[in-house]
């Protein structure tokens, strides 16, 4: 196993340069709890300052930067709490910031257009938000506690207790597609089916946000499937 894998983004790079390279990293560093205003500090220095595992931070940055980036040989079991925490911060961002913001944009679009049918977008979006909330609550209340319990049991070898959750990580990794359906429908409705109307600025803004959300959710799910699930599988196998 090589630890000298080619990182496109390395620990010696200045964090400010990393952000310039790919502005989507703004979302990543926020979820790691790194505030902006880091001057010329390197990724590594910042990790030390905020007590983060630099290996994990680099994996996430590189996976986000290049979806083909292979993590094999880079994952270590003690990344589990860090990655779970990262994912939780992601949920927090979706539920408390991103989705309410899109909802506001939809309201503005509705009040700037003369087409009363657009009001239905808000009810539709609420249904979507409910689905996402439910999905993320399931992860927070079932999947993550399971993952953490598996992690904490490393070394204890208490086989008998292993199945108390009746859960396997593979059960949940297949479970992602269902929350994408309505998001895509909403895009199609706005792009293709609602007739031309006033409020074009907001209609576009909603779409830009939806595309951004879709992209970000894919990254988020990719991390669960590519980093979290393999780690937990590894622990499950040790039994």
């Amino acid at each position: 196993m090589s630890h000298h894998k080619e990182f496109r983004i390395g620990g010696d790079q200045r964090m400010a340069d990393v952000i310039e390279l790919n502005h989507r990293f703004l979302l990543v560093i926020e979820r790691f709890g790194i505030p902006l205003g880091f001057g010329d500090k390197s990724v590594f220095e910042i990790c030390v300052k905020y007590k983060l595992d630099p290996a994990l931070v680099l994996i996430v940055l590189n996976v986000f930067n290049d979806h083909e980036f292979s993590v094999s040989g880079l994952l270590s079991e003690d990344m589990v709490p860090g990655i779970v925490n990262y994912l939780k911060q992601g949920h927090c961002y979706y539920l408390q910031n991103k989705l309410p913001y899109i909802s506001e944009l939809i309201d503005r679009f509705i009040s700037n257009t003369e087409n009363p049918d657009t009001r239905l977008l808000q009810s539709f979006f609420k249904e979507y938000v409910n689905e996402v909330t439910e999905h993320m609550n399931l992860e927070e209340n079932t999947v993550f506690p399971y993952v953490i319990s598996q992690y904490e049991r490393i070394g204890e070898r208490e086989k008998a207790e292993k199945d108390t959750f009746g859960y396997r990580i593979d059960k949940f990794v297949d479970n992602h597609s269902n929350i994408e359906e309505k998001l895509d429908d909403l895009k199609q409705l706005l792009i293709k089916h609602f007739p031309p109307s006033n409020g074009r600025f907001y209609r576009n803004q909603i779409l830009l946000e939806l595309f951004d959300l879709e992209y970000d959710l894919n990254d988020h799910n990719g991390l669960e499937e590519k980093v979290l699930a393999p780690l937990v599988r590894k622990i499950e196998k040790r039994g």
Binding site: P116, D117, R119, L120, L121, S123, F124, E127, E181, K182, D184, D185, L186, Q188, L189, K192, H193, F194, P195
Partner: peptide, 24 residues
């Protein structure tokens, strides 16, 4: 249409006057 969900199709139906908006 590129629409999968029943509620998405319902909005399509309203836009195209296949049902009344009140039915949504």
């Amino acid at each position: 249409l590129g629409i999968k969900s029943a509620s998405g199709l319902t909005i399509y139906a309203v836009i195209n006057k296949l049902i009344n908006a009140d039915d949504y």
